[in-house]
Design a protein around this nucleic acid. Structure first.
Length: 495
RNA sequence: GGUUCCGUCGUCUAGUGGUCCAGGACGUCUGGUUCUCAUCCAGAAAAUCGCGGGUUCGACUCCCGCCGGAAUCACCA
């Protein structure tokens, strides 16, 4: 099999959300399957959109998901550097090559004139194409064009529109007419290249032979094809990835409708295994009925041709279900201690806002306590706390149907206040049971029902806002209010 | 508006002319199990395969038209 070289090329404009991390996962899988390379390249040519710290966040996200790159930032390879802003002269050389071939020109037209052209075409109801307004400077000799090229003057491609056909691994055979090909900007007036030009230069220099990107680039592909042709280059394999849709509506998932960042899910207790599994299978499957895949299974079974060609809706409920599956699997494979240790590591990484020494202190207390807990039962009993409840959810429970809402409420409140009355030192399984049993004696309802009542109330406990720490216990998130006590103890300590 | 892409249960999907009165999973609902946490088991409802025409002995699968949705048309990527 031919070795596939792919890349993930994000721009550092903010965090990576689940809508776009998939365009890192698929190329990664394709590359690894063939024994090829996965390259990470930072496309930071738009300085106005640059966000401080975004690159670090991208690296962190990819590492958490286990998508380690073979070349890229912090891992130089033959094509270094991997930041486009540091490759300025390379693009200018390539642009010069096109000028020499008579396929690019320096365009002195000012923005106001360009806007006039656009308005003119609009009123005439003809499609706006810049090549219809190509300036006379485009026909100058290469040396004259180069002498015209200076700071503040952009370089445009001199297109030769014609019908084009190409193959997309996901969408199949595609075609487009000349009306979508235009004199696109290659080098902006600030001397930096546009995406349209830079990605082609970089992909060839880095040996990329499979380009996976969102479908929004589909309509630009004819222009790219023209560029490849003008540069005597063989185009790579194209893989267009359909959008991930927001839970509501038909729009693609974006930050605007509150798409969470990948790291936010990490902080909420989602495991990287579950995230990778869910995202990979959102819009792809291997034709079998398997739902759970390890990373190596994904690498083995992945194939670009089986990527779905319509958008898929993001469903957090299924992610949560899958997370539960993975928790059970990892706990049984690695043991509970190791599992919790790892979960705590993730938390440590995510709670950057805390002081280092404070963090250490909290963690050492948690670790000490964890050591004294030998198994899952003890562990969950210890964390079995903070019984906030949602009456509406509870009335749906089949055990609790025979209770009226009022009855439920008073039962819950009684048991909760009884539990809360147990103080820190006596918070043991034995004491909990004793308290509950004494409650049971006072009620005529069956014990099983009351126990399940209390248990369910724990299941719906929300995340703890105070300490920002949530552990997922067997698929459910349990608030660690015992840890809150640790925290307040520390705060008192510091005063 | 031009161009291009897409259209199977609420959701993610299987399906490449007969084995599909459409299979699996999430969610939902109904039983059962559990006086530690987690559950787990059984079952049900749920798609006239966007619509209308062809082709064919036979179409979810091929062709045409229509409708619906989306993407793109920047010195953003």
């Amino acid at each position: 099999m031919k070795k596939i070289v792919t890349r993930f090329a994000p721009s550092p404009t903010g965090y990576i959300h689940i809508g776009n991390v998939r365009s890192a996962i698929y190329p990664y899988l394709a590359a690894k399957q063939s024994g090829g390379k996965f390259i990470l390249r930072i496309e930071d040519t738009d300085q106005s959109r640059y966000v401080e710290g975004a690159t670090e966040l991208i690296l962190e996200t990819l590492r958490w998901l286990g998508l380690e790159w073979d070349e890229g930032p912090e891992k130089d390879g033959p094509a270094a550097p991997y930041f486009q802003s540091k490759r300025k002269s390379i693009y200018q050389d390539w642009a010069k090559r096109l000028i020499l071939k008579g396929r690019a020109y320096a365009d002195p037209t000012d923005p106001e004139t360009i806007q006039k052209y656009r308005d003119l075409d609009n009123t005439k109801k003809v499609p706006y194409l810049y090549r219809n307004h190509r300036p006379k400077e485009a026909d100058l000799s290469p040396s004259e064009i180069i002498s015209l090229w200076k700071e503040g003057v952009p370089i445009r491609f001199k297109s030769d529109p014609k019908p084009r056909k190409w193959h997309d691994e996901v969408m199949g055979d595609l075609h487009a007419g000349p009306e979508v090909q235009d004199d696109i900007i290659l080098i902006k007036k600030d001397g930096l290249p546009t995406y349209n030009f830079a990605h082609i230069v970089d992909d060839t220099l880095m040996g990329v032979n499979l380009v996976a990107r969102g479908v929004e680039y589909l309509s630009s592909t004819p222009n790219y094809l023209a560029l490849y042709e003008a540069l005597d280059l063989n185009p790579p394999l194209f893989v267009s990835l359909p959008h991930i849709l927001a839970p509501q509506g038909n729009k693609k998932l974006s930050k605007r409708d509150g798409a969470k960042s990948v790291t936010e899910y990490r902080d909420d207790g989602i495991l990287p295994e579950a995230m990778l599994n869910y995202l990979a299978c959102l819009g792809w499957n291997d034709g079998t009925e398997q739902e759970l895949y390890t990373k190596s299974e994904l690498i083995e079974k992945f194939s670009v041709s089986r990527i779905q060609n319509s958008g898929a809706r993001f469903d957090e409920t299924k992610l949560l279900w899958m997370n539960g599956q993975w928790i059970r699997r990892l706990v049984s494979e690695q043991g509970i201690d190791k599992f919790f240790e790892r979960t705590l590591d993730y938390w440590l990484e995510s709670s950057k806002s805390y002081e280092e020494s404070y963090k250490k202190k909290v963690l050492s207390i948690i670790y000490d306590r964890l050591k004294t807990l030998s198994d899952l039962q003890e562990m969950t009993t210890y964390f079995f706390t903070d019984p906030k409840f949602d009456i509406e959810m509870l009335t749906k429970n089949k055990f609790l149907k025979k209770f009226s809402e009022l009855e439920l409420k008073s039962l819950l409140e009684t048991s909760i206040s009884a539990l809360e009355a147990i103080d820190e030192k006596n918070w043991t399984e034995e004491n909990l049971n004793k308290t509950l049993n004494s409650l049971l004696e006072k009620t005529e309802k069956k014990p099983a029902e009351l126990f399940s009542l209390i248990r369910i109330s724990v299941s719906f406990a929300p995340f703890s806002p105070a300490l920002d720490l949530t552990l997922s216990v067997l698929g459910r998130n349990v608030t660690l209010s015992r840890l809150q006590s640790v925290q307040s103890a520390l705060l008192l300590d510091n005063q």
